[in-house]
Structures are given as C-alpha cells and as structure tokens.
Design a binder for these strands. Structure first.
Lengths: 198, 198
DNA sequence: CCTACCGATCGGTAGG
DNA sequence: CCTACCGATCGGTAGG
C-alpha cells in the first residue's frame, strides 16, 4: 500500500478504516470479518486500529448511523418541497435506487448487518428506521387521499417497494453489463406503475 | 467412526438439528451461531451433534439445498402447466410469497447465508440459482413476446420482483397485526400491475 | 450421548 | 504504529 493519489480532500485514518471495514462486512458479514482482516486491508497491525476506533462494534454502528443520517436528511429535503405526493414517492424511490446502485458498501452493511448491534445502539437504530418508515407511510397515505395512489395496504406497499430495490446492493459484481440509467428507469417504472391510479 | 443408521420412521435427530440451526442462523447469522448454541437448543452437548452431522457447514448446505430443491420442483409443475405466460408469472410470485410469508427460517437462511458456503457447495448453489432465474426469465420473455407483459428489461424486472418479496421473511415478528391473505393480494397486485400491459 | 480436551483464532490490552 | 501477549471461545476430536 503506497500513497493514495486521490485528488480529494485528505481522508482520516478512521475514515479509511470505516471504508475498508464496510467492504469486508459486505463481503463476509460482520461476524466473519476479523479485526486482523480489517487491519490487513488498511495496512497496519490489528493492535494499531485501536488508536483510531474503540472497537469492532463501534465501526459497525458508525457505518449504520452515518448512512441512516444521510437517508433522513435527504428525505427532509423531499418532504419540504412543493411537489405532489406521487412525485415525492417517486423521488424517495429514486433516492433509494441511487444509494443502492452506487454499490457503496455502506448500503449493504446498514441493510443487512445492523442486527449485530448491541444495546443501546440496536434499539436506537430500530427507532430511527421506524421514524423514517412512518414519514414515508404518511406520504403514501397522502397519495391515497388525493386519489393519485391506489394500493390496498400502504404498509405492505411501502415494504414491498423498499425491499424491491435492495437487490441492487449486490448487483455491481454480478451484472456489469447493465446500464445504471436504464436499470433506474425500469425499476421506478415498474413500481410507480404498480401503485398509480390506472 | 460408527455406522450411521438412517431412521425414516419419524422426525430424526438430524432433522431437529437442522431446524434449530436454521432458526438460530436466521436470528444471529451463520457465523455468529456456535455449535454450542445449536446443541443448547437441541438439548445435548456440542460434541454429540457430530453423531448426526459432519460439521457446521454441512448444516448450512443441507438447509440451502433442500429449499432450493423445493423451489425447483414447484417451478417445474408451474412450467409444465397449460397456463399463459402472465399466469405462470403470477403463480411463481405466489410461490415466493407463500414460502417467505410462512416465515420458515429456511427462506431466510437460503437467501442470506448461502454466501458462507465454501467450495464446491458455494459454486453449486450459485449454479442452481442461475438455472432457476433463467427459467423464470424465459417465461417473462414469453410474456413480452405475446404482448401480455410490458417491461423495458426482463432481468431488472425479475430481480426487482423477487427482491420485493423478501421482506416477508423477517415480517412475522414485527407486524403480527397483518393478515396473510391480504398481504399476498397487495404484493401480487402491485407487482402484476407493474408489469402488465396497461 | 457424555467428559475431557485439542489447536487455532478471536477481540482487545500493555507498554514502549 | 509496533511487538508481545492475554483470556475466552471457537469448531471439532478422542475415547468411553
């Protein structure tokens, strides 16, 4: 490992550790990833990691909460816009597609590894997720109220839509032949078609 | 090593071990589940498990392949029926909803823990899955050809639909208030609406 | 199916 | 950031 010639702003060692850990967590899962694995990717001995982080679980929780915060703040912008309910739904779905399609390992880790958090982080994460889902539900119900959305159960529709996008988080290495923009169009088209008034 | 005598009369100890292991794998993940965890649930010492199974990974692979075989054989029945392409798609989606909504721990383990298989099982599993997906793709393309299905990319549509159903595998403990039949209708309605000719 | 126990490896610490 | 090393625990084996 030589110098990183990124023209970007300088990353802290802690950021590098979080990124390498996220990649490993996505590949092997949290439990199967060892501190020695992470240290190897970063290029230091395992003991040296502890100068930058307090432990393995702190790495996981910082990954989970940083992406959760990204979702929440981007949702706030969409919620405070003047768009119609159905357009807000479309924008939220696009947000999810973009985050998952970028194949940032963060998305995989937040979606699949959060359950390895212990209390109190475990409960806090669940609470954050519940709040996010409730905001999303409110918009869906607005769409039902104004007649632009037709679904028989808003909760089931929400979970179905959010779940349907998650395959993208593992997609990058298996289907490199697909074009991101056309994938985005197809998914959004299918989902919006599914909930829109005929 | 002693001879293994197979008793088919009733539920064997091996079956009990596989079931308890599947439940634990769903809860904590494969890597975080120890043989002592499994032994505790079964009611024996860890060393005694090895009279019925050859190791931890064999437990995982038997779970993954047994459900994969269930999917394959049920798909065969649907494929050999006289139904139209769009009706076959609907039946396949119903099959997925039913298996995931039953909340059998098998579904979670097959979907999320298969990556912990080592070679050659890992490759064999991937090959089985690829074959299944290709059969499914063929029917979608039949639907496109006969004009009953309208999607801009059959592969993206397939992954989106299959992925959209997976949230059900974790649903049982978080949303006990929902009715299975109405959930089924909402999901299938949304997805079929999304791909059907307007 | 048990007791006894193994080599390996885990997350993490001490001390420089 | 390193070397050295810890107690705990892992999957699995020996032998009865």
């Amino acid at each position: 490992m030589r110098e990183m010639s990124k023209t970007r702003a300088k990353k802290t060692k802690k950021q590098i550790i979080l990124e390498e850990a996220a990649t490993l967590f996505r590949e092997k899962g949290y439990s199967a990833t060892t501190m020695r694995d992470i240290a190897g990717k970063v290029g230091v001995e395992a003991a040296s990691l502890y100068n930058h982080i307090t432990g393995k679980e702190q790495i996981l929780s910082q990954i989970c909460f940083s992406l959760a915060d990204t979702y929440t703040s981007k949702m706030d912008v969409i919620l405070n816009s003047n768009e119609s309910a159905i357009d807000k739904i479309k924008e939220l779905l696009l947000l999810h597609v973009e985050i998952n399609a970028m194949s940032s390992p963060l998305a995989s880790v937040m979606n699949d590894e959060w359950r390895h958090l212990t209390e109190p982080e475990h409960g806090e994460f669940l609470e954050k997720r519940r709040a996010y889902e409730n905001h999303f539900l409110t918009i869906i119900e607005e769409g039902i109220a104004d007649g632009s959305v037709v679904v028989s159960d808003s909760k089931v529709a929400l979970y179905t839509m959010l779940s349907s996008i998650r395959w993208l988080q593992h997609w990058y290495h298996s289907n490199k032949d697909m074009n991101v923009e056309s994938v985005k169009e197809t998914i959004i088209g299918l989902l919006m078609n599914g909930i829109k008034k005929a």
